[in-house]
Design a protein around this nucleic acid. Structure first.
Length: 150
DNA sequence: GCCAACGTTGGC
DNA sequence: GCCAACGTTGGC
């Protein structure tokens, strides 16, 4: 089973939103590498929910993959903020997965705390300027994150 | 295929 | 608001 890191701006969609709704479509991903990672996601995989572009940024909880990748229909909707005219009905360019709420950490695992952990120095989110909104985690990384979060 | 221009992300 | 990083686009 794999572990992932998935970012969202809480002003757009937060862990509290997910907790209230129980599950969600992870739509709006418009980055090829992130999409390709979603294609690798398997049922039962776990994902850490990272709040970005907020104060403080950090990992706030966990989710579980409950539906593997399928067409992101929001790309077809001209009124949707993530509309992409290059994604055609007969040849969709973008995809999404479904995730279920798992847990909210008792304390946010802040970016600064993650940075202070030497064993996480290669964690992709910590690389300055990295735009990837979805990244796979190595076993060493997710184990340390779980330990720090408990 | 190169590369400059441009847009987005996201921490600070 | 600033700015570094970096993905995307398009001319050639």
């Amino acid at each position: 089973m794999a572990y992932w890191l998935m970012k969202s701006e809480p002003s757009a969609y937060s862990i509290d939103d997910l907790k209230r709704e129980g599950q969600t479509h992870w739509d709006g991903i418009r980055n090829y590498q992130a999409r390709n990672y979603m294609r690798e996601m398997q049922l039962g995989d776990e994902a850490f929910f990272y709040h970005s572009n907020c104060s403080p940024p950090g990992i706030v909880g966990m989710m579980k993959v409950i539906k593997t990748v399928y067409t992101d229909h929001t790309a077809f909707d001209p009124k949707d903020i993530h509309f992409d005219p290059k994604s055609k009905q007969d040849q969709p360019r973008w995809e999404m997965v479904d995730l279920a709420y798992g847990a909210t950490f008792p304390n946010i695992l802040s970016l600064s705390a993650l940075r202070a952990e030497p064993s996480l120095e290669t964690l992709v989110i910590l690389r300055k300027g990295n735009r990837l909104s979805i990244t796979p985690l190595s076993e060493g990384e997710w184990q340390v994150i779980l330990k720090l979060a408990s």
